[in-house]
Computed example of a mutant assay.
Amino acid sequence: MDALAQLPLWTTWLRASERSETTVRLREYHVRRYLNSVPMETDPLDLEWIVGYLANPRWKAATRRSTRTSLRIWTTWLHRTGRILSDPLSLIPPARASISVPRPCPDAVIRKALLSSNTRLHAMIYLAAEAGLRRGEIAVVSRDDDINELTGNSLIVHGKGRRERTLPLTDTAAAAVKRQFDLVPPEIPWLFPSAGRYADTHLQPVRVGELVNDALPGRWTAHTLRHRFATEAYRSSLDLLLVQTLMGHSKPETTAMYVGLDTALARTVVDGISLVA
C-alpha cells in the first residue's frame, strides 16, 4: 500500500465528516510529516517505528498529543475501510493530558518582540496577545471578518468546532490588522495569504505558530500570548464566564487553566495570614 497516495482520499473523508479546513490541513500535515520520516525499507505502519516517532524527546506534550491524534484518525480510517487488517495505534495507550501552570508572556518580552518584527508579525502578535486568538484562528482571518462598529473594530473569529464568536479589538490590535490588510492585494481576502504550496489560501496555522515563536525569546510561545490575554482579561473583569466567552472555550475549567496568578493580590492575602505581628 502506498500510504502517501492514500492521503488525498483520507482528507476527502475528513472534509465529508464536517471537520473544518484548518483541522483537515493540520491532520494532513502531521501524517505527511510522519510518512516523510519513514525510510524506504520500513513499513510506515510498523508499531515500533510509530512509537519511536511519537517518543521524540524534543517535542512538547501538546505536540505529541496532537500528532498522535492525527495518526490515530488516519490508521483508524485505514483499518475501518479494509486497507489494513489491524490498527497499530489501538495498542498505544491514550496520551495523558498534563495540567500545566498558566504562563502569561510578560509585556516587556512582547514589546521587545514587536520592535524587531515586520507588519505581518505585528498583526499576529497583537491578535494573540490583545485578542487571545489561537494560531488557527489567526491564520483564517479574512476581510469579511473585520467589522467597523460605532464603538470600534470587532473581529468575527472562526474557532474550534466551527464555533464563531465576535470579539472587540483594542485600538492597537485593530490598527495592526489594518496595516497588514493594506499590504495585501485587495482581491485576496486573507489577512495572511500563503505563498507556498497552498498559494490560493491562507497561511497555515503551523506556520503562524512558527513565526510568532521565532519572534519570542526562550520558552515564550504564541500560546503564552493567549495566556497573557486570559490573565489580563480576568484581572480587568473578575468575570470568568466573560473571559471564557472571549477565549472561545466550551468549559470554564479550561479558561481557568489559562489565567495566571495575580501575584500582587496573592502576596497581600499571604501577608495577611502571617503569624508575625
Score class of each variant (00 low, 15 high):
K160C: 06
W190P: 08
T119V: 14
V141Q: 05
R165M: 02
V157K: 10
Y126G: 09
G161D: 10
A128H: 03
G161T: 02
T151D: 15
A139I: 04
E137H: 09
R135M: 07
A139G: 08
K160R: 10
T151C: 13
P185R: 14
L183Y: 13
A123M: 06
K160M: 09
T151L: 13
Y126L: 07
A123V: 07
A176Q: 06
P186C: 10
T170R: 05
L183D: 14
T151H: 15
D171A: 14
L133D: 04
E164R: 11
T166E: 13
I156C: 11
A173G: 10
K178M: 09
E130M: 00
G159T: 12
G132F: 07
E149G: 15
P189Y: 09
D144L: 07
V157H: 07
E137L: 13
I188Y: 03
E137G: 09
L155N: 01
N153M: 13
T166G: 02
S142F: 02
T166D: 08
P193T: 04
I125L: 00
G136F: 03
E187C: 05
I125K: 05
E164P: 03
K178E: 11
L127Q: 03
D145A: 00
L167Q: 15
P185T: 14
P189T: 08
H122M: 02
F181V: 09
D145Y: 03
P168N: 14
R135H: 06
M124N: 02
D144G: 04
S142Y: 01
L191C: 02
I125M: 00
L150C: 10
K160Y: 02
S142M: 07
H158W: 15
V177E: 01
D171F: 06
R134C: 11
D145I: 01
T172C: 07
P186W: 11
A128E: 10
V140D: 11
V157I: 14
A139P: 06
K160I: 02
L133A: 02
I147G: 02
G136N: 11
N153G: 07
R120F: 08
R162M: 13
P168V: 14
A139H: 04
I125W: 10
G161Y: 12
L183S: 15
L121N: 09
R120C: 00
D171M: 04
P186F: 13
K178V: 12
R135Y: 03
S142T: 14
A129T: 04
R165E: 04
L191H: 09
L167R: 04
T119D: 00
L150G: 12
K178A: 14
E187K: 12
V184Y: 01
V140L: 00
L167F: 07
Y126C: 10
P189S: 11
I188R: 09
P193C: 07
T172H: 12
D144F: 02
T172Y: 05
P186I: 14
L127E: 04
R143A: 01
G161R: 11
Y126P: 08
I125R: 10
A131R: 05
W190S: 00
L169Y: 08
G136L: 00
D145W: 01
D171V: 09
R134A: 12
L133W: 10
D146P: 04
P193A: 01
F181G: 02
R165V: 04
S142H: 05
L150H: 13
W190L: 07
R163E: 11
N153I: 08
T170H: 03
L133K: 07
Y126V: 00
R143S: 01
P186Q: 14
T172E: 12
R143V: 05
R120E: 03
